[in-house]
Measured scan of single mutants.
Amino acid sequence: TFELKGKVGKVVKIAEDHYLVEVEGDKWIAYSDEKLSLGDRVMVVDVDGLKLKAKRIP
């Protein structure tokens, strides 16, 4: 999973306390310091076990 750092994905679902992000065809649980919206493009900035930390990108 460490190779996911720096990869770009898309928010495909918003849950109460996390997001579901699709990166290279796989879906991952993600969290972010900022509020994300459905369809936002994100970059993986860190990997915490099986969770990704994501940041919105333009």
Rank of each mutant, 00 (worst) to 15 (best):
K10N: 11
V44P: 01
I29C: 09
E3K: 03
L20F: 12
K13G: 09
K5G: 09
L52Q: 01
K5W: 15
I14C: 10
D26I: 14
A30L: 04
E34T: 07
D17E: 11
A54Y: 02
S32N: 04
M43F: 05
G39E: 10
V11A: 02
F2A: 15
A30S: 11
A54R: 01
K7F: 02
E24D: 07
V47A: 07
S32G: 04
E22K: 08
K13V: 09
G49R: 05
L36K: 00
E3V: 02
G49C: 05
D40L: 04
E34I: 04
Y19P: 01
L4Q: 09
V12K: 06
K53N: 04
Y19I: 06
D33Y: 09
K10E: 13
T1G: 15
D40S: 06
A54I: 15
E16I: 11
I57D: 06
V23L: 14
V11T: 05
K55N: 05
L50T: 09
W28I: 02
D46F: 03
V45S: 04
D26G: 14
A30I: 04
K10D: 11
L50D: 13
V45P: 01
F2D: 15
V21K: 00
T1Y: 15
I29W: 12
D40C: 07
A30D: 00
K27D: 09
V42G: 00
F2I: 15
D33C: 09
I57L: 12
H18K: 09
A30C: 05
D40V: 06
L38T: 08
K13L: 10
F2P: 15
G25L: 06
G9V: 07
D48A: 06
K51L: 10
K35P: 10
E3N: 03
F2H: 15
V8D: 10
W28G: 01
D40T: 06
D48T: 11
D17C: 09
V23S: 03
K5Y: 15
V47R: 06
G6Y: 03
K13T: 10
Y19C: 06
D17I: 10
V11Y: 00
G49V: 05
K35Y: 09
G49E: 07
K13N: 11
A54C: 15
V8I: 13
R41S: 14
K27P: 08
K10T: 11
V45Q: 04
L50C: 13
D17K: 09
G39C: 11
L20V: 09
D40W: 07
K27Y: 08
F2V: 15
K27E: 10
W28A: 02
F2T: 15
G25Y: 07
P58Q: 12
V42L: 04
D26F: 15
G25R: 07
E22W: 09
G6L: 01
L52V: 09
K55T: 06
G6N: 04
L36G: 00
K27Q: 12
V12G: 02
K10A: 13
V8A: 07
D26L: 14
I14K: 07
L38S: 06
L50P: 07
D17N: 11
E16K: 12
R56G: 05
A30N: 01
H18A: 08
E22G: 03
K35M: 10
D48K: 06
L20H: 13
D46A: 05
E22C: 10
E24G: 05
V23Y: 02
K55F: 03
A54W: 09
I57S: 05
G6T: 02
R41M: 13
D46R: 03
G39T: 07
S32E: 01
L52R: 01
K55E: 12
D48F: 13
P58S: 11
V23K: 01
V45E: 09
L4D: 15
G39H: 13
A54S: 03
R56Q: 05
D26E: 10
V12R: 06
D40P: 00
D48Y: 12
E22T: 11
F2W: 08
V44N: 01
I14Q: 08
I57N: 04
G25F: 07
D48M: 12
K27W: 10
Y31R: 07
L20Q: 08
K51F: 07
E34N: 07
E34S: 07
I29D: 10
Y19L: 05
